[in-house]
Design a protein around this nucleic acid. Structure first.
Lengths: 183, 183
DNA sequence: AGGATCATGTAAAGAGTTACATGATTCT
DNA sequence: AGAATCATGTAACTCTTTACATGATCCT
């Protein structure tokens, strides 16, 4: 259902589009929020057209099909936006790794955290560029801002975790206790 | 693969467990990070036992099977932790909604944002309770902290977005321009 | 005895990924 | 002419959700 909403929204915001266009837009800004590949998008567009949410407006060269949104599609999107609960059902591999960190010996845990930090900072630079490119009032501005704030949170967390681990390492060294076991 | 890693980690951290136990633990703290229901867990445990990652240690009353982790399982978990890239492939319905907000008329957008805010604050209270219950040094402490920081980020974002929308509303009212179209 | 909880499964359908496949057009 | 890109699809597989199904044990 989320895929439908995303496609409807992209067409609503960007005007009539082909599956190819929409695939590109998924790879662009929407990628920070939701992913879909052409093999998922094309069949979905066909189903949505069959369900009356979209209309094939034109068939161009190279078999290009341009879909536009119908009244039913608009109402479906509206419905979805208002009815979807902010359940925060997250399935987040990064967070899962965070959960598992205490299972690793310190050095490896620190390695992971530093890698995470590097990754988050690179991503943040990327997003910040996008943010300034995109200016103040663009579709996606809200999502961009949200993404940025979450990246900052991830960064702060990684720094916190690294410091925490290092402190406990110092404590361990000072009291010369036996090292914790391997994973 | 993430499900395997999560199960291996739960057994590694919590000792030999049954599918029922693991299902409960998924509903507990791990739910903030990854979800799985018993119908996914039971078959996966059987496959993992067949693959030599787990061993059925005991069969208790009511058909209870207790799985323990094997050396192969431990090494698989280790592998997963070190090899999984922090790709941040997120599929986040909340963020998708954020992306779509500009499509809604202001009042509805504000409604959504306020609902989001309420939800985030409730969740945060929940997590903060968990955090203090759980104390300083528990398995899951890192994930909890990470979750909290992300909730704070979501909260700040929602406040920012609400303010932004209200400001643009004021601007609109002052200059008495025509309202933006319906979705 | 009856209800709650423990405990495990399977089946069907939906969502998502990866790989395979094809052909048209544009650019150099 | 050949490479890049445009453009759409299908098939097989994995992962996830929802619903169906069953029986044992514990507690009152």
């Amino acid at each position: 259902m989320s895929l439908r909403a995303a496609l409807l929204a992209l067409i609503e915001a960007g005007g009539p589009s082909s599956g190819y266009d929409l695939t590109k837009r998924f790879e662009g800004s929407l990628a920070y929020v939701w992913q879909a590949s052409h093999s998922q998008i094309y069949p979905e567009l066909n189903r949505m057209a069959a369900d009356g949410l979209l209309r094939v407006e034109a068939e161009g060269s190279r078999g290009r099909k341009t879909y536009s949104i119908t009244a039913a599609g608009r109402s479906e999107l509206h419905q979805w936006l208002l009815e979807t609960k902010p359940e925060q059902r997250v399935r987040n591999e990064g967070a899962l790794r965070a959960f598992l960190i205490p299972l690793l010996p310190r050095e490896e845990a620190l390695g992971l955290l530093r890698e995470e930090l590097r990754h988050v900072e690179a991503r943040r630079a990327e997003l910040e560029t996008l943010c300034s490119d995109v200016g103040e009032s663009s579709f996606g501005r809200y999502a961009l801002e949200r993404g940025l704030r979450h990246l900052v949170a991830s960064r702060e967390w990684a720094l916190w975790a690294i410091e925490r681990l290092q402190k406990s390492e110092e404590a361990r060294t000072e009291t010369a206790r036996t090292p914790t076991g391997e994973l």
